[in-house]
Design a protein around this nucleic acid. Structure first.
Ligand SMILES: [Zn+2]
Ligand SMILES: [Zn+2]
Ligand SMILES: [Zn+2]
Ligand SMILES: [Zn+2]
Lengths: 147, 147
DNA sequence: ATAGGGCCTCTAGTCACTAGAGGTTCAAGA
DNA sequence: TCTTGAACCTCTAGTGACTAGAGGCCCTAT
């Protein structure tokens, strides 16, 4: 007879917490599993694979919407896989933009620290910089879309 | 007589949206302003300064908790400014860790794209990699605390 | 005096979970 | 077989940092 996993088994094997698995089911990411007579969820091997796939896609930083999309694609082995490329390329661009924004931010922050000597708040260069853009970096502006 | 700004004036001058200003007030980040006879908020120049300070700190990526802290510190010009250093240094470390995590991620994503040829989903290397850690990068694991 | 844009409060929605209450079921040991 | 207690169930609410909408009042310029 086929393997059968409780929700806790799945959690232990995938590292995804039990409430999160139920949440994934509630948003339609995981199919509804069979139940025991006492209404507890029982999963098969395929659910385990799906959950690992989800965990892996999330680890790559894909938002849930893309994970949905990826699962849909993966469910049809005979179709062409070109959409995958687009999704991964899109994610790569996001990550690169994020890196360059954060790199600018890193430079600004270390610039603040570099020019800093301990004194009173009233004389503090860092506080001054927070109060006035023109002091925090020459000709500078913050245009990160938010982190 | 002193300058007086409506909440919309503040929004235009700081780039922070009106509901956000009300939200900041609700969480105690901005003091409660005076009101007109008709119950509308009227701000002075100090509120404008505070709001600009908040916007700037947020642009540096500080979470609200730290913004609170920074405002508290800035409100006491005679005290020593050493806590500022700690806050900025902490933020810098976060940013650096984030950059290194994202850099690894970038390399993995471009690795996936590099080895990819269009075919069917069933043969797709990228889908395979999502299904199996051992294929997505040799000896690799994803341990980003979450983006 | 009236039009209409700005302002008010309150509620609910976002994303991806997480925590808790209060109750039921399963499985292992006696 | 019975008992215990860990694991499971559903449902609600909370997180952070806002954003959107409903329904209604105010302010100011013409
Ligand atoms: Zn200082
Ligand atoms: Zn600045
Ligand atoms: Zn492919
Ligand atoms: Zn992997």
């Amino acid at each position: 007879m086929a393997e059968s996993f409780s929700i806790g088994d799945l959690a232990r094997r995938t590292g995804i917490k039990v409430p999160t698995i139920r949440y994934y089911e509630s948003i339609g990411l995981m199919p509804e599993p069979d139940r025991t007579a006492g209404n507890q969820r029982r999963y098969g091997r395929d659910a385990l694979d799906t959950l690992n796939f989800i965990a892996h896609a999330r680890a790559f930083g894909f938002p849930m919407k893309s994970v949905h999309h990826l699962l849909d694609i993966a469910a049809h082995p005979e179709r062409p896989c070109e959409d995958i490329d687009a999704l991964v390329a899109e994610r790569l661009i996001e990550v690169e933009m994020r890196i360059s924004g954060l790199t600018r931010l890193r430079d600004e922050l270390s610039g603040l620290l570099a020019g800093h000597e301990h004194g009173t708040v009233g004389e503090c260069r860092i506080i001054e910089a927070f109060s006035d853009h023109s002091l925090c970096a020459p000709g500078h502006k913050h245009d990160l879309p938010m982190e």
